[in-house]
Every structure is written in C-alpha cells, then in structure tokens.
Design a protein around this nucleic acid. Sequence first.
DNA 1: TTTTAGTTTTAGATTTGTCTAAAATTTAAT
DNA 2: ATTAAATTTTAGACAAATCTAAAACTAAAA
Lengths: 220, 220
Amino acid sequence: MKFSASKENHLKTIFHLQSEHGLVTTNALAAALQTRPASVTDMLKKLKEQKLLIYERYKGFKLSAEGKKAAVQVIRKHRLWEYFLVKKLQFGWDEVHEIAEELEHISSRKLVDRLDAFLGFPETDPHGDPIPDSQGRIQARRQLTLSELPLNKTAQVSGIASQTTEMLELLQYNHIRLGTRLEIRKKFPFDDSLEVKVRNRPPVTISARVAKNVLVNDEN
Amino acid sequence: MKFSASKENHLKTIFHLQSEHGLVTTNALAAALQTRPASVTDMLKKLKEQKLLIYERYKGFKLSAEGKKAAVQVIRKHRLWEYFLVKKLQFGWDEVHEIAEELEHISSRKLVDRLDAFLGFPETDPHGDPIPDSQGRIQARRQLTLSELPLNKTAQVSGIASQTTEMLELLQYNHIRLGTRLEIRKKFPFDDSLEVKVRNRPPVTISARVAKNVLVNDEN
DNA sequence: TTTTAGTTTTAGATTTGTCTAAAATTTAAT
DNA sequence: ATTAAATTTTAGACAAATCTAAAACTAAAA
C-alpha cells in the first residue's frame, strides 16, 4: 500500500488522462510526465505486476480498481496540501502546485486525515477541484470549459485544468481567477480565440489553448 | 543548495553526533543511521566532494561551515513540522518523529519560513529541543541529563535526547513527559538505575540507559 | 614490537528509475 | 494492399544509494 514518489506520479497522471480519454497511450503519459516513452513503458510493466494497471503491450492502458484507489489518495493529498498552503500559509493559488507536488508523497495516512479535519473537511482545493474524502469518494462536478460556454452567458470560474505556473500567471494577468464571473462577448472562428469580459474591466482576448483549460460552472 | 533526502539525513546525523563528540567515526554514523559502514564511506566521499565535510580517510570527520549550515536547516524543518503536528494536528509528542522524518525533506525555503510564521515562531519543539531560526541560529540550552541530576533536587523534563518510539513509549508508560516535574529518590550504583518520583504517582525505576536520554532543566 | 582485534575502505554487485538507440508493431497514406 | 510514418517496446547503459565480502589500515594486547 506504499508506493514510490515516481509510481504515485504515474498513477495520478494516468488517472487524470483516462478521465478525459478512456484509454491512455504511452506517448500521452510521457508528455504529461515530462519523461520519455521508454521510461513510461518500464514503469507500466511494474504497475502491471502490482496489479495497479490493466495493460497489454501496444494496446493502451488504464488503471485497475486498485490503481484508481491509489491514484485518488495521491490526488487527495495533493489538494489538501494546496488548500493548506493557500488558506493557512497565505500562499497565492498560483504558486502552490510545485510545493504540493512534493508534499503529496508524504505517506502517513493518519497525517492526511488529521490535516483534512484541521482544515475543516474542505470540498474543493484553491483551483476549484474537488478533494476526495478519506474513503476516496470524489464530488462529481458538472462544469464545462470556457471554450464550450455559449456566447453572452455569464458563468463563474470553478477550476483550472492545466496548472502550470505559466498558465496561472497569464490568467492572473488577465484578472481571471477562481470565482471570477465572466462572459464571452465574441468568438473568433479563425483561431477559436475569445473576447472575454470580466466585470469592471476592459475586455481581454483569450486563446483557444487557454480557454480549454478554464473550467466554469454549468448551472445558473 | 538542494540535497537528496539521504544526504540530508547524513548531514543532520553527523551534526548531532559531532556536537557530543568532536569528531565523528564511520561506525558511529552507520549505527545512528541504521546502515552499513561501507555505505557511509560512500556517502562521505560525496559529501566531501561537495565541500560539506572535512574528511580524510581513516581519520574521522566533521561538517564544514557549509555542511553545518545545511544540517541546521534540516533540523529546523524537522522541529517545525513536529511542532505543527502536535500543536495543530493534535498528534501525541511520541508519535510525530517518524512523520517529521519525511516532512523534513520538503525543499521549499519559503514553505518553511511561512510555516514558522504560521506557528508563531516557536522556540522549542514538542520534545523541548530548540528550533533554529531562519538564519540558522540555535538557542543554546543549559540542561543536563537525568543521570547527572543530584539526589532530591526537583527538576523539569525539558527534552528527550533519543527519540525512538520505543523510548518515548516507555517514558509515557512511566508518566514522564515534557514538562513533568520530578526528583531522584535513590541511586543504585550497581547498575546506575534510579528511583524517580513524579508528583501524585508511585515511584518508578529508570535504567541508566534511559536516564541518560532524559534532559532536565539546570536552573531553579 | 609483533600479533591480533577492530575499524575503515575498496571492489564489485544490486535495485530503482531513468535514458538512447534500435527493433517491433500498429496506423495511415498512397 | 503495400509502403511509409508514427508509436511502442526492447536492449543495453547509467546514476544514486545501498549491500556483502575482502583488503587496507589503525589501535590495542601480549
């Protein structure tokens, strides 16, 4: 029940990838982990041996029930630590990801559960992503990407899919953050870029690349 | 300025050993780290190359100024996390050591300083050991071991030198913890064991081994 | 002061996670 | 349906940290 930091990273990333596209490919995982396909293949074999992965060579792969459980625990740890860093240590929401990448590998189960209680069992992390509970249950979210939001319909930013520092900085610059209310004023089919309006601000232009990574509320 | 977890453990342990006996020996370090002398030698060579260690083969070794600085930062992290675990997450003082052994290797300097501020810049950890400040300064302590305490002089437990779970459990069992006021009622020269009296409790017998690891206040 | 005992280091192996380069396999294109 | 291109895997290498067994060195005892 205890995995190396590298294994935890693989599990976590596979989890994220497969929740978008059912099966995951070696190349996609290598890109996401900033590593080489050959290295991924090596790890896949180990994960398969530990029955964490359903995998046949050349075929693509996905987590087993057990692998999913392990991945969710890592995600739980990551998001709880992010919440801690922002809410208790006054970090900005755009600077916690790297630190949480380290903290998420601390192994004590008891620590995680105590931290959860200390924080008051928060439901989402500072980026709006749901925090799995100690049983591994994840609050389902119905949210769409900014790309999918209809024209002139206001919505509230509820999450950021890709949390690179660069991306978060760009959003910060455009005054788009978690909870920001906004609407799309214009869509440019040429490159799928969007003109976005935030209250009390001049409109800003957002690339399709970015828009795909900004999640907004569905209802309302 | 960033070292592997293993290197940090070596630095930290050398620091502790050399503050008792000037020079440290390969065997002593191997014993303290629960590893083999040959493994220690390998690491010593690496530390020497990084100029963290003053070392000539077969001669014993000690930390350079740089090595000491690095070691103190690790100790700072360890003790701050212990304080956090006990004061914020309600862990018992006897169960935090192992978890802090992991947390102490998280690298962000900013995290450590923010944590320090969040905790209110505590001066000692839950075992009574002083916490280095962000400049690496350590509050000097004048304390002696229980073995050295004169007969019938009351004193207050201010620290535990060896923090194995086993040792802490034994002390817990005998109702001796940080802050406990006690006095020595009898000394048995045969094995240097002690009869110790804690207020409102029947006297208990403490071995020399344990007594050497219980630190008490000097003054008062 | 020589021998013996103990300590420390070297030599060589192992494990984990990574890499490059080449081979195997699958997918896409003509 | 072949060929070409892209993907994936294997084979072999490497770095870090550890180990065992043997050699080198030091200290202690006879």
